[in-house]
Amino acid sequence: ADLPWVVKPEEKMKFDSIFDSLGPVGGMLSGEKVKPVLLNSKLPVDILGRVWELSDIDRDGMLDRDEFSVAMYLVYRALEGEPVPMSLPPPLVPPSKR
C-alpha cells in the first residue's frame, strides 16, 4: 500500500489540466466527455475499451480526476508501444482508491 503511484507529479499536473479543461461536473467526467479524448489517440477501440475498464475503478461510468489520470497514463504508454495490461497493476491504483 506504500507503493508510489506510477503517475508522476508532473504527469498528474498535465492530466489534471486536461481533466479540468473537459468540464467535469461534481468532480467527475462522463464517458461521453472522455470518449472523444481517448479516440483522439487513434488507438484501436478495443484497446480504449480496456483502458476504460481498468481506469473506471468503481465502475460508475464516470471518471474522477485520479481515474482519468490512470486512463491517460495507459493511453500514453500504449502510444509508446507498451501493451495495456489485462488488469490494473497495484502501482497503477491511485493511492486514494487502495
Binding site: G31, V34, V45, W52, E53
Partner: peptide, 13 residues
C-alpha cells in the same frame, strides 16, 4: 446517463 450500449458503463463497448 450512460452512453449507448445498454447497461454497460463502458462507453467503448
Amino acid at each position: 446517463q450512460y452512453p449507448a450500449g445498454g447497461s454497460s458503463t463502458n462507453p467503448f463497448l
